[in-house]
């Protein structure tokens, strides 16, 4: 019973969105009108540009942000986890401070940067601030995961004659898969939902990512709020995320390191 309530609590808003997206607009504003409709979805998918464009944009930005973040965070985390305790501690404190820095304070500076370096209206360029903002947290997460891998495993590989890259490729990264998957998901989620930077860096309609694109969905007149269209956009926008979660679920949960040490 408690489980059912919890399920209802967490799934309720999503189900409500799904329901709203399939009801005609009149029904949502209280007028008694029955029936179901795909009208909101049709509107979105046939818009100019079609909603699919925004989805693809978000996937591109999310993918490149994730790739860039991991490419930088994995070596950093490895180095931090293998440094002497004293050095590692002070550097980790710095990274933690960066993670705690209020990102809002950076918007104006970022805007200046975008202007000076001509990064505005370049989709992939968004991955620079996104990776920058996600990097501290990703480093901390991965560092903890590296620290969980027993040193003896890497030493065994060292004695086996494996070089640094071989150890990373064959021993460490496979064992890190769950941690890497969860960090990747966090970065992707962040970039998927990020609004203020995307809003200020992108102005051309066909380059918009989901968040600013959804904000631009307008009703038939200034006074009508397009609840149905919003709901449909939310459903379409979260579908890929849910899919991603389901795909990586096993990776995140599986405890690969079990049995490395006696146990």
């Amino acid at each position: 019973m408690a489980r059912l309530l919890l399920l209802l609590w967490s799934l309720g808003p999503m189900l409500w969105q799904l329901y709203s997206s399939l009801r005609p607009s009149e029904a949502l504003s209280g007028v008694d009108a029955g029936g179901w409709t795909l009208e909101h979805y049709r509107q979105l998918l046939q818009g100019d540009p079609p909603f699919l464009t925004y989805l693809i944009n978000s996937v591109v930005v999310g993918g490149s942000s994730t790739a860039l973040t991991l490419a930088l965070a994995v070596p950093c985390a490895y180095a931090l986890s293998r440094l002497g305790r004293r050095q590692a501690r002070s550097l980790t404190a710095l990274v933690a401070a960066a993670a705690a820095f209020p990102a809002v304070l950076l918007f104006l500076a970022l805007l200046e940067l975008a202007r000076d370096w001509h990064l505005a209206n370049q989709l992939m360029a968004l991955s620079l601030p996104y990776a920058g903002l996600c990097l501290p947290l990703a480093i901390l997460l991965l560092q903890a995961a590296f620290a969980d891998i027993p040193m003896e495993l890497e030493e065994a590989a060292l004695i086996e004659g494996m070089g640094l890259w071989q150890r990373l490729r064959w021993i460490l990264l496979p064992l890190m898969a769950p941690a890497i998957a969860s960090s990747a998901l966090l970065v992707f989620l962040f970039s998927w939902n990020e609004y203020p930077i995307a809003l200020t860096w992108l102005s051309r309609t066909e380059l918009l990512t989901l968040a600013p694109a959804m904000a631009r969905i307008a009703g038939s007149s200034v006074y009508t709020i397009p609840y149905g269209a919003f709901a449909a956009a939310t459903v379409l926008g979260s579908a890929p995320l849910i899919l991603l979660m389901l795909l990586f679920q096993r990776q995140i949960i599986s405890g690969l390191t079990q049995g490395a040490i006696k146990g």
Partner: peptide, 13 residues
């Protein structure tokens, strides 16, 4: 050299 560790350090994956 070959080394057998106390924990065996077998590659778990």
């Amino acid at each position: 050299v070959a080394m057998v560790f106390q924990s065996y350090a077998l590659f778990p994956h």
